[in-house]
Simulated assay, not measured.
Amino acid sequence: MSGSNSSVPPGSAPAAPEPVALTVHSLAGPELGQGGAADGSRTRIGRLKMLLVLLVCASPVIASYFTYFVIRPEGRTNYSELILPTRSLPADLNLRTLEGTPVTARSLHGQWLLMAVGPAACDAACEKRLFMQRQLREMLGRERDRLDKVWIVTDEQPLTPQLREALGGAVPVTVLRADAAAVARWLAPEAGRRIDEHLYVVDPMGEWMMRAPVDPEPSRVKRDLDKVLRASSFWDKAGR
């Protein structure tokens, strides 16, 4: 007992205990402004990476077109007319089968397309173009599986049974209806001609890139097709 009071002088009251002091330390962390700047930087980096990926994916197409359109050896000529810049297959064509089933424009991607355009009442000139379309594909030999035949019908009239039968065969023509005005905003004839007087070439990316002349020489159109197929052989393969 004496040991517990030895520090208190006799006759003095015990000293009051000192209050406990607490010190609060703030935790380290990014300030609001710094966090916003960091988010903005990450967004810019993400967009840059996305653009680089798109560029890498598109580079084979760009390279083949550059080779075909720009790097031309002496004496090299094209019979068909090249379309520069190319025109993308629009989504508003309102494509549908002859029975009326909707077809997406995207479903035509993945193959080279040799396209004819015109009304369902196919006259003698139309029948000649459709026959040439079939013959041109067969003339490509082992490369023919990289090209599809497509006929865009620009009205609502029915096809005759005879024409339907002629469009069949081992490799039938893909026949689709589309709005005439929408087709005319995409494809275009040469000056003074109608849109249904040509054959049109569309690449696997859905880009209209070449137009055959009116009443063309099949062998010369075939050489043009050989050129574009050869230029794209390292990135385009047969089949969708």
Rank of each mutant, 00 (worst) to 15 (best):
S4Y: 08
S7E: 09
V8C: 07
V8Q: 03
V8F: 06
S12W: 10
A15F: 08
A16P: 07
P17E: 08
P17W: 04
P17I: 05
E18F: 10
V20E: 02
T23E: 07
L27F: 11
G29L: 06
G29D: 05
P30G: 03
E31A: 15
G33F: 07
G36E: 11
D39Y: 14
R42F: 12
R44M: 12
R44N: 07
R47A: 09
L48H: 10
L48N: 08
K49N: 12
C57D: 04
C57Q: 10
S59K: 02
S59Y: 08
S59H: 03
P60H: 02
V61Y: 07
I62A: 10
I62V: 14
S64I: 08
F66R: 12
T67V: 12
Y68N: 11
I71Y: 10
R76D: 12
L82W: 12
I83N: 01
I83D: 04
T86H: 10
R87K: 13
S88M: 14
L89V: 08
P90N: 07
P90A: 07
A91L: 11
L93Q: 00
N94D: 11
R96P: 01
E99V: 06
T101P: 01
P102I: 09
R106Y: 06
S107K: 05
Q111P: 00
W112K: 01
W112N: 00
L113K: 00
A121L: 10
D123P: 04
R129S: 03
R129F: 03
L130E: 01
L130A: 05
L130V: 06
Q133I: 00
E138G: 06
M139V: 06
E143F: 13
R144W: 00
R144C: 04
L147I: 15
D148M: 14
I152G: 02
V153S: 01
E156I: 11
T160M: 01
P161W: 07
P161E: 07
R164K: 15
L167C: 08
G168T: 05
G169A: 03
G169R: 00
V175S: 05
L176G: 02
A180P: 03
R185E: 10
W186L: 06
A188C: 10
P189N: 04
G192E: 04
G192Q: 06
R194N: 13
D196P: 04
E197P: 01
L199V: 05
V202H: 00
P204I: 06
E207F: 14
W208I: 03
M209C: 14
M209S: 05
M210R: 13
R211Q: 09
A212E: 03
P213Y: 09
P213L: 09
P213W: 06
V214D: 04
S219M: 14
V221W: 03
D224N: 13
A231W: 13
S232F: 15
F234M: 14
K237M: 13
A238K: 09
R240E: 12
